[in-house]
Structure formats: C-alpha cells, structure tokens
Amino acid sequence: MDLPLLSASFLAFTLTLYVILDGFDLGVGILLLFQPAKVARDHMVDSITPTWDGNETWIIMAGVTLLAAFPIAYSILLPAFYLPVILMLLALGFRGVTFEFRVQSKGHRRAWDVAFGVGSLVAALTQGFILGGLMQGVTVQNRHFAGSVLDIFRPLPIISGITLLFGYAVLGAGWLKLKSNVSLQYFASRSLRVFAPAFAAFFGIACIYAVRIQPGIRAQWASHGIALACLVSLFAIAAGTLTALSGKSRPALPFVLGLLLFVVGISGTALIVFPQIVPFSVSLWDAASSSTSQRLVMIGAACVTPVVLAYSAFAYWIFRGKTPENGWEA
C-alpha cells in the first residue's frame, strides 16, 4: 500500500475541512468590521460561537500530519513561511480571546470587535500569503530551505492573500445569510454583491499571474489542461451565479455556492501541487517519514477522525436553524 499517498490524501482532507470551516467563521469576523450596529455584531458573533473552535481542530490535525508523515516538507515549509505562520497564530490567538473578552468588556466593546475583525482579517491574509508562497515555489537546496523568510512578500503571495480574504468574506456572508434574521440577511446580500465579484476577479488575476511566473504551474497546465480548464469554468459559473443571485436567492444557496467555489479552488491547487509536497522541488515520497511512522499516523488518524467528525456534526446539529435573536444563552 502506498502509505505516503494515503497520508497526503488525509492531509488534503484536513486542510480542505479547515479552509471551508474556519473560512466561514473568519469571514464572519472580517464582515464584523463593516457592521456598525452593536446588536447586529452580537448576532453575527453568536452565529459562530458554538462551532468556531471545533473548526480550528482541523489545522492542528493538518500540522501534526505534516510533521509526522512528511518531516522533510515540514522542515522546509515552516522556515519558509515563518513570518506568516507566526502572524497567523498571533491573529488567531487575538480572535480566540476576543470571543470571551468582548462580552466581559464594559465600555470598550467596539474596540474588542475591531480586534476580533482585524484578527480574522490578518489570519485570512496570512493563510493566503502561505498559499501564494507555495504557488510561487519554495527555494530548496539539499532538502533544506535555502530562500529568505522575506520571499513571501512578493506580488503573488500578496495577491493570493487578498484573494483568500475576499473568499472568506464570501463564505462568511453566505453563512450569515443562512443563519440569521432578515436585517442581517440584507447585510449579507450587500456583502456578497461586493465580495463575490472581487473574489472571482482576484482569483483570476492570481491564476494568470501564477501561470506567468512559475514554469512548474505551466507544466501542470500542459499535462492536466482539460481538468484545470473545467475547474476554472466551474469556478466562473459559480461565482457568476453567486453575484447575480446574491439579493433574491434562497438563504442556503450563497453558502453552498461559496463552498463550491472553495472546493473547486482547492481541487485545482491540489492538481497543480501533486505529486510534489514542496512545490516545485520535493515530491511527497521524497519527503515522507519511515513506513513505521506513516503507519502510526494513519492508525491514529483512523481512530481520532471519526470521533472529531462525529462531535463536530453533533455540534452543528444541535445549533442548527436560525441563530436565536438574543443569543444561545438567553
């Protein structure tokens, strides 16, 4: 059995779940910056309170899988993305404490909400930077990172950061439309009208720019041209539908379309990166740990993943339907 391929599939699975699940709650956090009404902000935070920390489980799973199953990739990618990773952790930490602190705060609720929004925004940006850093290629010599930690501040990671920021805002607006009352649905629709076309446009720019600067991506286009072209058209159709219908659709449709956009984007990314794990220099078999370690990781994952999936599903099920007007505890 091809253990590295199995581990890599599990890694892709955890990263996908992380991006779409934490994506929508980070998106709600970003949209908090554009919501002037305190009551509406409370309602927005209430819509993600029951599930946001469960959503972040998946990035820990992804990190552990990368470390245990692909230690060489871990030792190259973590130094390469040192600055965005640390910034992301600080931003997520900021956002994590703000959930509690904003409720305790007496006179400074607005300031804590700004911290909440900025934390979400920085987390989204830095994740986009990391994606862009992967797409522009990582400098590797003798299986060691040989570039500079500042390589990440080039045009492609910056474009990619903004793209992911808009993408998360789209997911967040879709979530609000699904979970909230009429007045917030109006706010969600207005946000979608801005962020859906912006996301699609920046996604397009990022794709074109990435193809121009990275020969590795051109090579993947040459070999998977039809599949990638299908994904791009699917993305364009979904983004167009989302923009056109943002005002008058059923409450669930924007969120479903947002998820579709992300699944398509992630599939395209996977198609471009595979079979490398450090684009475009180290393959996942070259970066894999010993088969004993791989087996241990996969046995652990097989035990833990169903439990995590079950309790996450349980949490979503309990808090299904519209978020109550006065919060869950009232």
Partner: peptide
C-alpha cells in the same frame, strides 16, 4: 531551523507584547 535571528527576535517581541495585552485584559 534556518530562520535568521532578527526574524526570531521580532516575533518573540511580538509574542511578548500580544500576551501582555491578553494578560492585562484577563
């Protein structure tokens, strides 16, 4: 790891500052 010491120092300072804010608020 091959991360330059200036980068490590700046993130260490950032950690101390951010956690000082957390601790004060807490």
């Amino acid at each position: 790891s091959p991360v330059p010491s200036q980068a490590l120092l700046s993130t260490l300072i950032a950690f101390v500052c951010v956690y000082a804010v957390f601790l004060t608020a807490f």
